[in-house]
Design a binder for these strands. Sequence first.
DNA 1: GTCTTTCTTGAGCGGTCGCTCAAGTATATA
DNA 2: TATATACTTGAGCGACCGCTCAAGAAAGAC
Lengths: 190, 190
Amino acid sequence: MPRKPSYDRDDLIARARDLFWQRGWWGTSLKDLEASLQLKPGSFYAAFGSKEALFALALEKYAADGHERLRALNQEHGPIKALQYLVEFVIENDAAPARACMLSKTLLELTAHNHPLARTANKHLLKMESHFAELFEQAQSKGDIDDSHDPKLLARRYQSDLLGVRASAEREGVDAGAIAAEIGQDLARL
Amino acid sequence: MPRKPSYDRDDLIARARDLFWQRGWWGTSLKDLEASLQLKPGSFYAAFGSKEALFALALEKYAADGHERLRALNQEHGPIKALQYLVEFVIENDAAPARACMLSKTLLELTAHNHPLARTANKHLLKMESHFAELFEQAQSKGDIDDSHDPKLLARRYQSDLLGVRASAEREGVDAGAIAAEIGQDLARL
DNA sequence: GTCTTTCTTGAGCGGTCGCTCAAGTATATA
DNA sequence: TATATACTTGAGCGACCGCTCAAGAAAGAC
């Protein structure tokens, strides 16, 4: 007896992710979202409950896609090359709405306000860091990198470097590709 | 015949800088500023003209202080040690309202909106990068680091690393001091 | 003291914010 | 076809946004 929604929920979340990713939390208004998702306020709130709830879903999708990309790169090229390709990919992907990491943008924007979404973003970052550490472990098992390194420390540094180069890639007049290449060389030297 | 303002303009700019640095552009309201600067709307607009104009002054002060700090560190310890100490300082300075760089926060928040302040922030970042390059040049002149490196490339990478570790330092559960130490070691190896 | 000039005050402007809700519309079941 | 059950619509809520301006208060010049 009911009636189906006329939209694809997952597609709406993807569009919201792109808007939030590009414009940030305070920089994205309900009006922006209504225009992009083609949803009137009533439908919006029936579907997602609040702007905050949708942002959380967007973060989740963003993180899930990141994990999937890394997994695929690893499967095709092995751990170290996957980490090298990832850096290049995130700063060159023209399909992305921004070069900088959505999680870091969220963190920097909302941490000082003690906003729950800042904690959510940090959790996703920690998960991503763990994923990096797994790849460094695999690289050691395969003998690609020296056993003397601690995979967790390598992952921590790699993530920091990644945040830095992605922020740099958001700037005009900075050759982020060159920085990415240096990060890749650092990985090769391990 | 006139009447002097009851405030110290430079002190107000410093307080505004701290608020903006911590809470960001959209996250800082006129009400916040009025409370912190102890200024009613009328006085505020008589003194600074607009929220945007004050933010620009705050960025300028932020950048000027950064240059002065680097200059002082260089004078006391020499170029390479200055760059090493700077990383430690920015992520450990409890007096600062945030660990992350105000220029990068501004850039990430406002670039997608084509906001003039994003360009302003980027200009300050470029100036800072030039300052880093100068120090690397001096280090080469003194023989502290190898001549084969290009100071501009070293500066670019150093700034990227700095942005990364400062964003990481804003997170909970991340030992940014350890990352800073690694960056310092990288500098020592040049 | 008087005058002039500036600084200070705060009510309140038009606009936008995130969000609500009652009314209208479409669809799957019976 | 009749009914029940969603989904869709959009006017508009109270709160807050950045900002204005007329009136009052204070201080240097004479």
